[in-house]
Amino acid sequence: MRIEKKATLISTIVAFLLVTFKLTVGIISGSVAVLASAIDSLLDTVISLFNYFALHNSDKEPDEHFNFGRRKLEPLAAVIEGTIISLSALFILYTAISKMVQGSVIEHLDLSIWVMVASLIITAALVLFLNMVAKKTGNMVIQADALHYKTDLLSNGAVLISLLIITFTDYTFIDPLLGIGIGIYMIYSAYPIIKEGVLMLLDAALDPESVSKINKLLNSQLDISGHHDLRTRRSGSNIDLSVHVVFNVSTSLYDAHMVGDRIELALKNLFPENNVYALIHLDPYDDSEGEHLDQEH
């Protein structure tokens, strides 16, 4: 089993345990902040299960129905995850504002505090693990999961602080106020997840730094006289690119093919954490101007 799949299974188990504890205590105590954290953990469970499904199916080999594989499931999972986070944040905002208007009473503060302390420790350990996996694999789904649990870590800490303040001051208005803050922060954290996933689904080009690295590598090749029409995209943990490389007209097909293979290997080594699929067109002369004329007509 891939380490990414193991990570999503661990995330699911941890999220299920946290939602059980938080939801029980949130209902008993009446704390909006604890209840908001419980709802977030419930969504974590659903999201982690969906992420496992996405990773499991994205690994399948290309077939007659999906000639290029199913790697787009990874950014699709990220977009769905970000959307669910945003919707849960809106629910938390609604609940918190209602509590603020109607007034709130919190009971069993000691129990709520101990649950949040335990949640803080467990979530911190999970974030460290997911960060390690994300750094090792570069997987977008795990990166989104790690970012999500980082927001959980911050919200758990904030909830714990608010409960401690209420314990010593009886300022119960802090609870719904913090719920509003958590909701806003969840929406803020979900935006980059949704944005990156949508861009990947739309086949956006690689970032300028990566494109610059590719161009630098191509410019260093002494066996070609030039290159043009570089196109790039990212699909999950895969990088797809195509480029036209220009040879001298007297270069044999065999020699050009060998150079093309060497360039393809160099491109793969340029991004060792990704699966690079390079389509290299072997041009016997620079036909870029002709291509532009064809496109104009």
Score class of each variant (00 low, 15 high):
Ala36Arg: 03
Ala190Pro: 01
Asn215Pro: 01
His56Val: 09
Thr95Trp: 08
Asp287Met: 09
Lys72Leu: 10
Ser212Tyr: 05
His244Thr: 12
Ser212Lys: 06
Ile84Leu: 14
Thr151Ile: 12
Asp40Glu: 13
Asp40Pro: 07
Val159Gly: 02
Phe21Ala: 15
Val259Pro: 09
Arg2Trp: 06
Ile180Arg: 07
Ala256Met: 07
Asn275Lys: 13
Thr167Leu: 07
Ala278Cys: 03
Ile161Leu: 14
Ile280Thr: 10
Val117Ala: 14
Glu107Cys: 03
Gln102Lys: 10
Phe168Asp: 02
Thr167Trp: 05
Leu35Gly: 00
His65Ser: 14
Gly30Met: 08
Met258Ala: 11
Thr24Ile: 08
Ala7Asp: 11
Val101Arg: 06
Ile47Gly: 06
Asp110Trp: 10
Lys6Thr: 14
Gly69Leu: 00
Arg262Lys: 12
Asn57Glu: 15
Leu230Ile: 11
Ser41Asp: 06
Ile166Trp: 04
Thr20His: 02
Val133Met: 02
Ser237Thr: 08
Arg70Ser: 01
Gly30Val: 04
Lys216Ala: 15
Val243Cys: 11
Thr24Arg: 08
Leu279Asn: 08
Asp286Ala: 13
Leu93Ala: 11
Leu130Ser: 01
Gly197His: 06
Ile13Ala: 15
Met186Pro: 04
Ser37Gln: 12
Lys5Met: 08
Ala15Pro: 00
Thr169Gln: 06
Lys60Ala: 14
Ile47Val: 11
His56Ser: 15
Gly226Phe: 05
Ser225Thr: 14
Leu109Thr: 14
Asn269Glu: 12
Ile263Met: 05
Asp286Glu: 11
Leu293Asp: 15
Met140Gly: 02
Ala158Leu: 02
Ile166Thr: 01
Leu120Pro: 01
Gly260His: 12
Val19Met: 14
Arg233Pro: 08
Pro284Leu: 05
Thr8Cys: 14
Val105Asp: 15
Asp287Val: 10
Val19Lys: 02
Thr20Leu: 13
Ile106Thr: 09
Ile106Lys: 11
Glu81Ile: 11
Leu178Phe: 04
Glu296Leu: 12
Leu17Ile: 14
Phe271Ala: 11
Leu270Tyr: 13
Gly179Cys: 10
Thr137Gly: 02
Glu64His: 05
Ile106Pro: 06
Glu107Trp: 10
Arg234Cys: 13
Phe271Gly: 08
Gln102Ser: 15
Glu4Cys: 12
Met140Trp: 03
Ala204Gln: 09
Asn269Ser: 10
Gly226Cys: 10
His244Asn: 13
Val259Ile: 12
Tyr171Gly: 00
Ser48Cys: 10
Leu270Pro: 00
Ile166Ser: 07
Asp240Thr: 08
Ala54Tyr: 02
Glu264Phe: 03
Ile161Phe: 02
Ser119Ile: 05
Ser98Glu: 10
Gly197Lys: 03
Met258Glu: 15
His297Ile: 10
